[in-house]
Amino acid sequence: MAKHTLIALVEDKPGVLNRVASLFRRRGFNIESIAVGHAELPGLSRMTIVVDGTAALVEQVRKHLDKLIDVVKVTDITDDNTVARELALIKVKATPSTRSELIQIVDIFRANIVDVASDSVTVEVTGDEDKIDSLFRLLKGFGIREIARTGRIAMTRGAARPLVVEGKPQREAPRRRAKGPDVISNL
């Protein structure tokens, strides 16, 4: 068992995330995280999906994803040379006596303090999961109020573009409900 990173280009249409999530549920595949956002081409979104499982299982995941009509292309980039990042916001309890120690830790991790309140600070950190986990462990001693993580996004290094697609965008489908975009991170 190992963590695999899949990247997928999907049509930017209502319900796409539902189709992907439903597939994972129905086939009993375990999603560690999903991050979704617009891709470089109009009408397409890019998903980064982290799944836990054997190589054979992840290959099944990839092929089943590829069968979804709204999935344009999907690749497993686990063995590629990649840049992978996650962003986290961590709200930590802070008193005048702990604040300077906090700032030191934040500096060591090249994180930022993005909000300061009378009894707390909010730290923004970017990096791989290990880095965020380590920072989280260190900050735990101060008292964590809240944490929000985006889940991994990833890209291959160098000139390779494993997800290039040809063809014009499909007709733009109207949104089913006007209640915000169909984009969620971290299922």
């Binding site: 439903s22 489908a173 109207p174």
Partner: peptide, 23 residues
Amino acid sequence: ITGITLPITKHNYLVMRAEDLAT
């Protein structure tokens, strides 16, 4: 019904504009 039939269809559509019907 598109939600219900998601796992038992190859694909499904909810058509929100008459102009999309032919496609």
